[in-house]
Design a protein around this nucleic acid. Structure first.
Lengths: 236, 236
DNA sequence: CCAAAAGTGTTTGCTCTACACCCATGG
DNA sequence: CCATGGGTGTAGAGCAAACACTTTTGG
């Protein structure tokens, strides 16, 4: 139970005694789209430091629990959802990030389908939690502003080069739904014809055969994502 | 000094006492190119577990030292070099990765210019360290095989989409040098004319005006990287 | 019949690929 | 003068961008 030289063995036996052990937390950035805006789930701090400020939900790693398991647990505690897109983002370890002492925090980010969101926001009302549009954030605790900025950059990048976008949609969706995800997150318009051409040429999506009527206009074909597996470039 | 609820405040006061604190290590994957091969610096373990197996150099985070500082320190201890490309790779935290107890390890990877290598391999002879070609690795300790595989994937990706390649070269280099870096790491040939056209069109490189003679043939123009700063896509 | 989103092709420019020969040097 | 890598251009294919009208529905 007392690691002495891991993971290396650079034999300068000077460090045989107990090592300095920082606290290790996992923070989970939970994104979704509500009302045409990319939003993140934040919780209001009830204690010092940063009392009253908003923060990314997170918690400490437990014994016998992997980092990913911690993230999944946190996610479930906050939102009740499981089985959604989750990816390690970055590990933040500046000594001064927490005024109370050293905390190394491994950040993950999760994408929740826009549809499950009603449920979520209800479930999270108990502990003071809210979905904030990412371009209208409140005052944040710790270095959480930078963490969020970094996550958004990564999300934008992933959206352009992989198929994460599907993680923000329900099983069945229209191509317009998909296009809207891209437009909202990347914050620029796409040409409808070119967009559809590109998506269909990627062959990641197939029509369900069903149509859905969503207003006083022509019904739309719905599609489903072929394999519920992500990305061509599965390197972060 | 005793963080109680960081970084979140999900008020279930059950965890007010001292948290479980795993050991936190930083491992540094140091890559370079020697003799037309991509190589990684490994050290031989002198103690159990995995005695005699090779491992990625690393060490524990110290108080008041950021993760990056730890990585820089490890890198300097192993190789003597400073001021080289360093990037956080991933954080590995499976509870069973170290048989002796929980160790969370934040992996960084570094790229050392091919030229500084002579110096390095000499300097590292003291502690049993060796440069191994990445496609001819010895038996490795812990989960280090996967860590290396992951790093190589990331390195390949970075090479294609950013300008990390320059981190493996000296200040001044020929276009053939650069092409060779790409060919070695991506393990496929490039067309000389197309390669040069592309590199020059990116405008990241400028001729030094000097030429270098390196054999019984026409001397080559040398170039330098315009801004010693990396990547267009500065995300992960 | 009107409003609103769904759906659909073609042209143009640009980027990527394939490909072969002359040049400068040292021995 | 020979061997060796340095250096250069062009044509064709495939991909990305721009762009406008018809269809289906509910009210």
């Amino acid at each position: 139970m007392k690691p002495d030289k891991e993971p290396t063995t650079k034999d300068n036996g000077a460090e045989e005694h107990s090592y300095y052990r920082p606290a290790v937390a996992v923070d989970v950035l939970i994104f979704t789209i509500i009302n045409e805006k990319l939003r993140i789930l934040l919780i209001k701090r009830g204690i010092e430091p940063f009392l009253g400020k908003w923060a990314i939900p997170g918690g400490f790693v437990r014994e016998n629990e992997s980092l990913e398991e911690t993230a999944i647990r946190e996610l479930a505690e906050e939102t009740g959802v499981t089985d959604i897109y989750l990816e390690q983002l970055y590990t933040f370890g500046e000594p001064e990030r927490d005024p109370r002492g050293r905390v190394i925090s491994v950040a993950y980010y999760a994408l929740v389908p826009s549809g499950k969101v009603g449920v979520l926001s209800a479930a999270t009302d108990v502990t003071e939690a809210k979905w904030f549009p990412v371009n209208d954030l409140p005052e944040l605790a710790f270095d959480h502003r930078q963490v969020i900025d970094y996550a958004i950059k990564r999300l934008r990048w992933k959206l352009e080069y992989t198929s994460v976008a599907y993680s923000l949609l329900e099983e069945e969706f229209t191509l317009t739904d998909l296009q809207r995800i891209y437009e909202i997150i990347l914050n620029r318009p796409f040409d409808k014809r070119n967009f559809r051409k590109k998506i269909l040429s990627l062959n990641l999506v197939e029509p369900t055969g069903k149509k859905v009527v969503r207003g006083v206009h022509r019904p739309a074909q719905t599609y489903r994502f072929k394999k519920r597996q992500l990305s061509l470039v599965e390197i972060t």
